[in-house]
Amino acid sequence: RIGEVSRCGILAKYNNVSFAKSLGTVVTERMIDTLTILLITGGTVLLQMPVFVTFLQQTGTKIPSFLHLLTSVWFYIVLFCFIGVAALLYFLRKTLFFYEKVKGFVLHIWEGVMSLKGVRNIPLFLFYTFAIWACYFFHFYFTFYCFAFTAHLGMMAALVMFVGGTFAVVVPTPNGAGPWHFVIISMLMFYGINETEAGIFALIVHAIQTFLVVLLGVYGLTALSFAGRQRK
């Protein structure tokens, strides 16, 4: 997730925005994004419950295993260890030489997090949030019509794969490479697409999306370098 940090660095360099404050806005954005995807996921699961249950069973991910984790004694041992370390650091905070520096940095981040209070037009902010995620979805859904073997799949199938792919991208790999392919291929096979065609779809769609990110990144870096020279 180096892009989140580099974005804050660019804002600090070219727009004189505090790095810590901009990092705080990133935290706020990710909180809003998390809430949005949870709402989308909740609606999709309610509409396609049998699909998700079958997918979890076929991939060996059983819901009762999560409940077993919460009832395991080792889970609570690890949890109490983390709490103990956090409590120890809290009581020793003023004896640590970097306490004041870290405290100031955290306060700036908190200012960025609370920047949501300063949004002038909340309805417009919510509309843009919805529009961004709608673009994410249609960016994926329209690729179905690029292949004869996926053109017949409906919007609900695309929504199920979109939700699965979104969670797969959370895994820290380059643009979700690997986990995203696994989820999309598995779900396509569930909808009757053979493994070879599902692999072709996942490989081509992910490669083109990644290429677009790289292309826009190169353009952005080039444009920033010219902007920097003009200011000088």
Rank of each mutant, 00 (worst) to 15 (best):
R1L: 07
E4N: 04
E4V: 03
V5M: 08
R7W: 08
G9E: 01
L11W: 10
N16L: 02
S18F: 12
F19W: 13
A20F: 09
R30Y: 07
R30W: 05
R30C: 04
M31F: 15
D33M: 03
L38H: 10
G42L: 11
G43W: 12
T44R: 03
L46T: 09
L46W: 12
L47T: 14
M49F: 13
V51D: 14
V51N: 13
F52P: 06
T54W: 12
L56A: 09
L56T: 04
K62E: 11
P64M: 06
F66T: 07
S72F: 04
F75A: 06
Y76T: 11
I77A: 08
C81L: 15
V85T: 10
A87Q: 10
Y90A: 14
K94Y: 12
T95H: 10
T95S: 11
F98A: 09
K101D: 11
K101F: 06
F105E: 05
H108T: 03
H108N: 08
M114N: 05
L116E: 03
V119M: 00
R120G: 11
N121C: 01
I122T: 08
I122S: 05
P123H: 08
L124G: 02
L124A: 06
F125E: 08
F125I: 05
L126D: 01
F130L: 15
A131N: 09
A131Y: 09
F137R: 04
H139T: 01
F142R: 03
Y145K: 12
C146Q: 02
F147V: 12
A148F: 09
M155P: 05
A157P: 04
A157V: 13
L159C: 04
V160W: 05
V160R: 07
V160I: 15
F162W: 14
G164Y: 08
A168D: 01
V169H: 14
V171L: 06
P172W: 15
P172F: 12
P174L: 08
N175T: 04
N175Q: 07
A177T: 14
G178F: 06
P179D: 03
F182R: 08
I185M: 04
M187D: 01
T196M: 03
E197D: 02
A198V: 09
I200N: 08
A202V: 09
I204W: 15
H206M: 03
Q209I: 02
F211T: 00
F211C: 00
L212S: 05
L215W: 01
L215M: 02
Y219A: 05
A223N: 00
S225D: 05
R229S: 04
